[in-house]
Amino acid sequence: MSGRARGGALRRFGRNIPAVAATVVLVAITLTALVGPMLYPVDPFDMVGRPASRPFDRFPLGTDVSGRDILAGLIHGARVTLLIGFAASFVATAVGVTVGALAGYYGRAVDTVLMRATDFFLTIPSFVLAVVLIAIFRPSLISVTGAIAAVSWPPIARLARAEFIAQRERDYVQACRALGMSDARIIVVQILPNALPPVIVVSSLLVATAILTESGLSFLGLSDPDAMSWGYMIGVGRTVLRTAPWMPAIPGMAILVTVMCINLIGEGLNDAFNPRLRG
């Protein structure tokens, strides 16, 4: 993609008011995750007060069933949520692009084998597989990120494959071959930059899915026991659903807002990079 095309995409994104607003909110959430613990130095696992105190009473958002500060949990949870969301999406994109690039570029047997594997992973219920993987390797930041990535790469692989098939017979690729450039160089340096924009769009939306999956896993208790997460907070609050509905409601709202922002940004990127597809 040339510099001018990229500038056009950026300008189109800038005109998309919901996407820009979502970017502002997501930046705010990210900043909270980064510097929040310094500005509000409360340990989210510390029992700081009476259990289940209401929001705005003594603590900004009240305390949970064990008297832990909910605001502190929210701030620290943002770290875990964003970290796992982005890391899982990044790993899944790397795996997906590698598989898709090899399948699309080489075609034939390589393509058949890799795509069969991709279809297979699309078939098995991904959430169940993630649960089993984490149960086997014990919950930790690494195992949760790895499990989410392990079940999220297939759509990226299919997309990358389609892009590579579309590019591999183009003149510039033929020219590179004629010049004796190695396959690896053609794939990484020549085709990849052209195949990347649509992949980036899907991979940004994957962050949203990854965050939702992470929240579901930690709700089931499959989260790093040393890291506070929003899904875990909902799981804790659920025990007092009848008497203190705000307790699970607050972290749930945090997930909703974060995921909505990422989706709006992803759609904005899609409109910006693929203007022809606008409805």
């Binding site: 949203a208 579901g216 709700f219 009848r242 909703l256 995921v259 709006l264």
Partner: peptide, 22 residues
Amino acid sequence: ALVVYATPQFWLGLMLIVLFST
């Protein structure tokens, strides 16, 4: 669609219990 795509299903379930049951 915008709201529902971003809502964790299990959390939606809890909120519906609060509203329709409790």
